[in-house]
Design a protein around this nucleic acid. Sequence first.
DNA 1: GACCAGGGCAATA
DNA 2: TATTGCCATGGT
Length: 281
Amino acid sequence: MKKYTIENNIIHIYDKEFFSPKESLECGQIFRFYVNGAGNYVVISGSNRAEFVETKEGYDVVSNDPQYFVDFLNLGYDNCEVWRNICGKSEFMKRVAEVGRGIKILKNEPFETICSFIVSANNNIKRIKGILNRISAQAGSKIEGSEDYAFPTIAQFKGLDEGFFKSIGAGYRSRYLSCLAENYEEFLKCNPQSLDTPSLKRRLLKILGVGEKVADCILLFAYNRYDVFPVDVWIERIYYQYFGKENISRSEIAKRLIGEFGENSGYAQQYLFYYKAIIGE
DNA sequence: GACCAGGGCAATA
DNA sequence: TATTGCCATGGT
């Protein structure tokens, strides 16, 4: 069975088992989304916007650019096999993956992703969302046919100074954000898509405000490198609860979990994060 | 009023 | 390379 079709600029997704807008958006990989008056999830990625309307067989994606969202939603990637593989790891992982079965790892816009996870450092999701929305509303352009604002372009971002970011509540991350546009343009010269994961990570780490964990998030959520395992406070907690008692560093936790999940590390990480940080089990 | 949030930087050893 | 103090802000 075909998993999706496009008709009149609407993507019809024929899948409810392994794709849920709610789970895919709420699992912490993206911050610019909301539930509208009709009860539908709306997501904004870069300068694009999509609304998810539930149908009998799945979801209709109503957007300004269907091709962008076919790519964004990774509709050509079969997460069913990944899910089965992770379920087979243990009874515990089966329970965790069952809760987050509808999660699909998205392909978010790189510049926005880098900015988002710089903001995420030592922060909470509610406040991260607020900061990113204020940056967009005050520096981005309105998306045609909606009341939502695009994430600022690199050119728009260049005009923002440290004072601006402080004024919208970004705190000490303002220094990193004020030079991000320049740093990103320099970063682009390495031709990110062409690099293998370790090389791309080394290059990301040169961006001010990007450390180990943030780099891993960018690798996973913008470049879809599934062999990384971002370790934050929540993953650290669940690791000590269910995987090992020995006190080790976050990078060592990442190394051991990658050893366990291999090419499916990114998905395992999202299931675990969703289970612990969002659902709260 | 302390503690916490999807940590990272810069100094130090 | 590994450790440590510090960093802004809003929620609980």
